[in-house]
Computed example of a mutant assay.
Amino acid sequence: MTSPSTATTDRTDERLTQLEIKLSYTEDLLDTLNQLVATQQDQLNLLLREVSRLRQQGGSENMAAPRDPRDELPPHY
């Protein structure tokens, strides 16, 4: 027969083991999420540079003479 203190110690050990397992999974998840956030930040930075470049290109084209909408009609009209 096990003594009450041994049973309590066994339960405590089991709880600690379960907490360590959960901590391990949590740390792995955190590392994965950190990598994902870093990748997304790189993508955002790339997209922001691209938008800025496109705005600069569009701005220089808009400085040209205004277009006549009739110039946009297909030739068969």
Rank of each mutant, 00 (worst) to 15 (best):
M1Q: 14
T2F: 11
T2S: 12
S3P: 09
S5K: 07
S5A: 07
S5F: 10
T6I: 09
T6C: 01
T9W: 15
T12K: 12
T12L: 10
D13N: 08
E14F: 07
E14V: 09
E14C: 02
R15Y: 00
L16R: 06
L16I: 11
L16W: 05
L16T: 10
Q18K: 13
Q18I: 07
E20N: 12
E20V: 05
L23D: 13
L23A: 09
E27V: 00
D28P: 02
L29W: 06
L29C: 06
L30T: 12
D31Y: 05
D31M: 03
L33Y: 14
L36C: 08
V37Y: 05
A38H: 12
A38Q: 06
T39A: 12
T39Y: 04
Q40G: 09
Q41G: 02
Q41F: 03
Q41D: 10
D42A: 12
D42P: 04
Q43S: 09
Q43A: 08
Q43L: 10
Q43C: 04
L44T: 11
N45V: 04
L48I: 15
L48A: 14
R49P: 03
V51H: 15
V51A: 12
V51K: 15
S52N: 05
S52R: 04
S52E: 14
R53E: 11
R53Y: 12
L54T: 13
L54K: 11
R55C: 00
Q56I: 02
Q56W: 01
Q57R: 02
Q57V: 01
Q57K: 00
G58Q: 09
G58M: 08
G59K: 04
S60M: 08
S60P: 01
N62F: 10
N62A: 13
M63A: 14
M63E: 15
A64D: 08
A64H: 11
A65N: 05
P66T: 01
D68C: 04
R70W: 04
R70P: 04
D71E: 09
E72M: 08
E72I: 03
P74G: 10
P75F: 05
H76E: 13
